[in-house]
Amino acid sequence: MIPDLILFFGLALVAVASAIGLLLSRSAVYAALNLILNFTAIAVFYLVLDAPFLALMQVTVYAGAIMVLFLFVIMLLGAEKLSTGPTLPYQRPLSILLAVILLLEAAYALFFRSSPGAPPAPALAGFGSPQAIGETLFSAYLLPFEVVSILLLAAMVGAIVLTKKPRRRG
């Protein structure tokens, strides 16, 4: 129990800290790095929660592919720094106020609306394994899986079309 708590709070600290870092970072590059750290922490949570396949996907797809893409764009645009100066003065206090309210609501829901749960029983063997995911994915979720492939194709085409420079005529 204790090592679990230590692990959880340690990782939670890393995750929250990196999220705050993302929030407060001046530079987009730092923000991206903070986000990678955060994603990695969450990947560890997935392992703890018996989802090893997702944990690996988190690292490869999110922390790897997507964040590389982000960094790539940041480097491409070279505009990681922005002009300062408040343009919407009420935006920040209102946002913080709403965030606090949301947190309070979540705390209310967690502490008063749900019975304090016992830790779940140990998972069955093979739960969350690539094999189990594969079986579920290619049986019950076959159609969404195929649709996702089309979605990715469309996104790829869309990205190319959007970034392509308009062809000049003549």
Binding site: T87, L88, Q91, L94, S95, L98, I101, L102, E105, Y108, A109, R113
Partner: peptide, 22 residues
């Protein structure tokens, strides 16, 4: 025209709906 204002509105909606549900 400020996208952040719209985002704020959505967030307000989320908070309100969640509050209502709770």
């Amino acid at each position: 025209g400020f996208v952040r204002n719209y985002a704020l509105s959505i967030f307000l909606g989320v908070v309100i709906i969640l509050g209502y549900l709770l």
